[in-house]
Each structure stands twice: as C-alpha cells, then as structure tokens.
Design a protein around this nucleic acid. Structure first.
Length: 632
RNA sequence: GCUGACAUAGCUCAGUCGGUAGAGCACCUCAUUGGUAAUGAGGAGGUCGGCAGUUCGAUUCUGCUUGUCAGCUCCA
C-alpha cells in the first residue's frame, strides 16, 4: 500500500506504484488538465514518473514557479525539435527554462532572422498538435557518449558527468535530447509559444568559446495569457528610464559621449535631493566626508594592484611628461587620505565617505542608459577598523543599506561573492574575510545567494541587486572587505600596546552609483517621483491672465518655503495646462480662477487622485511640507 | 569586445522598386480668457548618423565607420 499525502493533509492510498497524473485525475478532471508537474517529497518530478513508496505530493500548475519551469523546459525541447526539422545541420547546445520563458542555443551555418521566427513557430505548432508523448530513458555513460558522438556540445556535457551516473534523455517523436528533466507528459500540453528574439551567446558563457545563436522564446497555456504577457512587457518598456529621462528632461546620453551621461536641471534636482538625504544619514552614522582627485599619478595604481588587475578598464593621460591615471575606484585616493597622519586605536573605526566620480572603460556592448555607464558617482566609503570591530561594522553598513532601501520600498536580492581566480592576498585572509561577511549576514537573518568566484580582486563582497522595469537585476549596494590595500599601502594605527597595527578596510557603497540608482528610481516610480524627490513639486495654473499676479504671489510664498514650484502663464485652456502638468508627473497642481482669488483660496489637484477641492494656501503648505519631511 | 537588428525634424514615426522628403506632438506668431487630461489659424524646422564606392543622379544600392537596441561576456 502506498500512501500519498496531499498538501491539505489528506491521504490517498494506492495498491501499486502510482503517477502524479493519476492522483490528479482521481481528484478532478479539471485538475488533471491543469497540472503540469509534481513535487514529490519536495523534488520536482514529471507527472508520469512512477511514485513507488509513500510520499508527500504537491501538484504543480503553470501558475507555480516550478510548474512554469517544467512547462517552459518542454517548450524549449519543442523549439529545438522544430529547429532540427527546419535546419538539419543544427547542433544543439543547451536549452533551459528561464524567468518568463526559455531559450535554446544552436550551432548552425544558417543565421536566424526575424523571418525564421514565424517558420519555427509554425513547426512548433505542428509538434504541439501531434501531441507526442515525452518519454524518458536512461543510458550508462559510455553508451550515452556514443549516442551523442556527433554533437560536441552534448558530448562535452556528458563527459563531465560521474562515471556511474545514469544519463537521462527525453524523446518526443523522432527527437531525442539529453536532459535531466522533468518534462510535461506530452508536447500537446503546451498551447502557444512565441519566439521573442535571437542573440549571440558564447558556449558555456566563455568568450573564448564559439559564439552560438540563442533563440529566446516563451510559452503559455493560452493565447490570452500570452497576449497579457506581451502587453505587460510593452507597458513595462514605457517605464524605461532612458525614455522617461528624455521625456521628463532629467538626463540623457549623446553620441558624443557614449556612456557619459548628462544631467539637466530637473535630473539634478532629484540627484541633489538624494545626496542631501545621503549626507544627513552619513553624518548621523558617524562618517566624515572627503573628496579625492579624479586624476592621480600612475605609480599609485601600480602600488594598489589596479595596474595588474584593472588596467584594461582604466583611462590614462599624461601631464608634463608624467603618466597619470583617471581613477576607476576611489580606494587608492582614500588610502592616501588615511596615510596623511597617524591614527590611534581610539580613532577606529574610522568611517570616511566620498561621493567619488570614477571612470571605467566598459565594453561598448555593455553600455545601458544610466544603468551601465563609463563614468559614474559612487557613494563610496572606506571604513578602517580592527579585526574585532569588523563584524559590527559590517552589520552597521547592512542596517544603513536596509534603511535606505526601505525608504524606496525596493525589493532586492543579496549575493555573497567569494575569491575570484585572479586575486591578491592569501587564501587565509580571504577565508577570514568571507566568513566575516557570512557571519554578519547570518546574524541578521538575511537571505542571500552564494556567488562563488565573483569577488573584487582585493576582497570578497556582499552585493545588493535591484530589478529594473523588465526584471533585469542591477547591482547597487556593495560591501567589500579588504586586507590587501592596507598592506600594500602599509597603513597602521597605534594600538593600546604602543605598537603599530594594521587596520582592516571595508569598502562600501549604498546607492552603488548615483546614476544607476536614479535610473532604478525612475523605473521604480515610472517617472512619478514622490513629492520629496519630484523635480517640480507644485505647478500653479492660473485660469486666465487675470490671476497671473495671484499665481505669482502663491509661487513666491511656496518658494520661500523651499518648495519647488512653477507657474504656467500661457494663454491656454485649463484642461490643456492640467494635461501637460499631469504628463510631466508633477505631484500637485494649484488652480486659481476668479473664485479662488476673491476668497483668497486655492484649488488643489493631486497627481494621483485628481481635484481635492479648495483650501487656504497655508493648509496646503502645511500638508506638502509635512509630506516632504516624511519623504512621501 | 562578440552575435543580430536598427539609425529620416526636439520627440514618436510614415516614405522614396535610385530623381535631394512627409504626418502628429513639441516650438514660434496671431486670435481666443477659458473651471479640472489636448481652442483655432498660420509659421519655422531635416546636407534622411558619418565617410567612401557604384551611378548621369544615392536618403534609398554596396563597403567601411560611429552610435543605439536585444543578448553574451564584464560590472556599480
């Protein structure tokens, strides 16, 4: 007797081995139709895989993340199947499910174009209609290798697997693919698929390898869901900071300076508000602010290790026949600032912040609006401390980061990145540093992912990643431990014992880059910034020329309270002025006609709500001042 | 940097199977003085990203180049 326990606690009993599909059928026919995979004792399995002993069973639908994953994975096989039929010379590489879809990497002489998409989709439809059962079979490693001998990619993948491992394959019609699975029971379970784009992708993500052609696609259980997805993506694109930055006249990048952004008065307003806030928080958290030069002698960069590890990303220049570098990071300058005098252990931890403008030579193909630029302002800080202070300092920084991100209601992902291949220092130092970061994360109960080998060349780091409008994530905040720079620069402090000791250094940035952070904010708010950040907070709209003086008076009063206010004196109808202010995403409009003027009042219109009626200017002023103070 | 696509007015986009271009919005002028998302009329604005080549003639075809977009790689 096999007992299958369902999530609601109920138990179904079966004489013999049973499949998740038949359990679903027992519950209801509708469920059997909707279910796409199952979690058996917490592991995702195919619906038709036999369950041979007692198990906890969770039936997965497309709506479940794991369910969608299986659904998309089978879809990727269908796409590979279709491509194989249309382009027989194609060699398959890998084709996993990803967020919102799937891709497959192909090696073929043919260059895929947009016109091929429709052809491939049509072929996929045929495979779906044929409703081939998707069957799993396994081979021992040596036979598996023989089976894929004509495909170097699959051959390489299998070669790396364990000798004794059973290698699983999935077969649908005549198409067979190496795959760990699981899969849908048959191809007909996929309803609609759409190829989204084609792009180059290096085999195994290594630029030394051959570049393959990657087809990105998605699939859904219904046309309606696909349409909704496409609509959603189009809507999301309207939030693109590059578009909004231009429309709202905040910032832009021109052909004359690829990767070098311009900020205009309205963008600067946002930037300055952020920085004001940043300065207040840092003063409170015990930081002193410094500024270090953008250009420093090349020697410094040899000493810091940047020459050996970061030269390709740096710009250089000559002054009076001397060689100079344009800083890609602020730390070496920070080192000089520390070294200028002697410190006591009583001075530690010493927290030094710098809004430092750094320049980096990024690959042209990597540039992306304000998200990825060639010059940006890091809200950097260097904390010099003793080993005992390390953990508390890390925790302090994480808490400050959490406080700032909470202000914007950001969802973020935390990653711990460890020792990369080409790094400075000893393994012991790295171990201590990595452990300190990990301990801090764990003592705060933070969820994080491990990202092995992705640390900076001088130390491991904790990174904070935030999503953009279409779900791409960007690293913003970062906390990096560094034993190397203090050693290279021979930094010391005087200990209680009268001897010189070496401090440990922590690099950190909260926004990460002001430019990237503003891009994230623009997309996060879809350009409708909260009052405290809005470039223009209030627009006064006189109904006719008769109210011009009154409008001006209102503006002057608000200006005197540091409220950012503009007037629209043009001889346009009120509807027109409102529409324009609305499109500019200005939080408050003050509308004044003869009525308001006679009663010494104002009409207020809120961006999100609409007309909220008339009030005295003083009432409005109290309201908006309070909102600004509370950062709403 | 690599793969693919794209580049026409400030913005969004038409268009020319090779005969030097057009709309809407924005801008300027005039009229209009209005009550919560577009008043009307007129005007100005483009060496069709740049450089070569083919051609009687190139914005259109070809090559190179610059930039942008998607992805890979890399990173805040």
């Amino acid at each position: 007797m096999i007992k299958i326990k369902l999530p609601d606690g109920s138990i179904k009993e079966y004489e013999n081995a049973v499949t998740a599909l038949s359990v679903a059928t027992d519950i209801s026919r509708g469920l059997a139709k909707a279910v796409v995979a199952a979690k058996v004792n917490g592991k995702v399995k195919g619906l038709t895989e036999p369950i041979e002993s007692d198990a906890d069973l969770l039936l997965l639908k497309f709506e479940d993340e794991d369910g969608a994953h299986v659904y998309h994975h089978t879809s990727s096989h269908i796409m590979a199947h279709a491509v194989t039929l249309l382009f027989p010379d194609v060699k398959l590489a890998i084709g996993p499910a990803i967020n919102n879809g799937f891709y497959y990497d192909f090696d073929t002489e043919h260059t895929f174009t947009d016109e091929d998409f429709a052809l491939i989709e049509k072929k996929m439809e045929e495979i779906i209609k044929a409703d081939y059962p998707v069957e799993r079979f396994t081979l021992p490693k040596d036979e598996a290798l023989k089976f894929v001998k004509d495909n170097p990619y699959k051959y390489e993948l299998i070669s790396e697997l364990d000798e004794n491992e059973e290698i699983s394959f999935y077969k649908q019609g005549d198409f067979v693919d190496l795959c760990a699975g699981p899969h849908l029971p048959s191809t007909g379970r996929v309803k609609v698929a759409k190829i989204m784009s084609v792009a180059g992708a290096y085999w195994r993500g290594d630029e030394k390898n051959k570049m393959l052609q990657r087809l990105y696609a998605t699939s859904f259980p219904s046309q309606t869901m696909l349409d909704e997805y496409i609509y959603k993506m189009e809507e999301a694109k309207k939030r693109d900071h590059r578009k909004l930055g231009r429309e709202l006249d905040l910032y832009d990048i021109f052909e004359e300076g690829p990767g070098f952004p311009f900020f205009f008065p309205k963008g600067m307003e946002i930037r300055n508000q952020l920085i004001d806030y940043w300065r207040r928080e840092h003063k409170r958290a015990g930081y002193g602010e410094i500024i270090t030069p953008i250009i420093l002698n090349e020697e410094l960069w040899h000493k810091s290790g940047h020459w050996d590890h970061y030269k390709d990303n740096m710009y250089f220049t000559t002054i009076d026949e001397g060689n100079y570098a344009i800083k890609p990071m602020n730390c070496p300058g920070g080192m000089l600032a520390f070294k200028r005098r002697m410190y006591s252990y009583r001075d530690l931890p010493l927290r030094t912040a710098e809004l430092g403008l750094v320049h980096r030579h990024e690959l042209s193909g990597a540039l992306h609006g304000l998200m990825r630029v060639r010059c940006f302002t890091q809200d950097d800080a260097h904390i010099f401390m003793t080993e005992e202070q390390m953990k508390d300092e890390i925790i302090g920084v994480i808490n400050l980061m959490k406080k700032i991100y909470a202000l914007f209601n950001f969802e973020y992902k935390v990653e711990l990145s460890t020792k990369p291949e080409n790094s400075m220092g000893t393994k012991e130092q790295w171990d201590i540093a990595e452990k300190a970061l990990q301990d801090a994360l764990e003592s705060l109960n933070m969820k994080y992912e491990l990202n092995p080998g992705d640390g900076a060349f001088y130390g491991p780091k904790i990174d904070f990643h935030i999503q953009d409008s279409i779900g791409r994530t960007w690293q913003c905040g970062t906390i990096q431990l560094d034993f190397q720079m203090p050693e290279r620069f021979d930094l010391t402090y005087m200990g209680a014992d009268g001897n010189k000791h070496r401090p440990i250094m922590l690099h950190r940035a909260l926004f990460g880059s002001i430019e990237r952070f503003i891009a994230i904010l623009t997309e996060h708010y879809a350009g409708a910034f909260p009052v405290w950040l809005a470039p223009v907070q209030v627009k006064v709209l006189p109904l006719t020329d008769r109210q011009a003086d009154y409008a001006q008076k209102i503006r002057d009063i608000l200006l005197a309270k540091d409220i950012r206010v503009e007037c629209d004196f043009r001889s346009e109808k009120i509807g027109y002025k409102i529409r324009e202010a609305q499109l500019e995403k200005i939080p408050y409009m003050i509308i004044v006609g003869d009525n308001e003027m006679e009663n010494n009042r104002i009409s207020v219109r809120v961006r999100k709500i609409g007309d909220i009626g008339t009030m005295f200017l003083e009432e409005f002023q109290n309201r908006i001042v309070k909102e600004i103070e509370n950062k709403l």
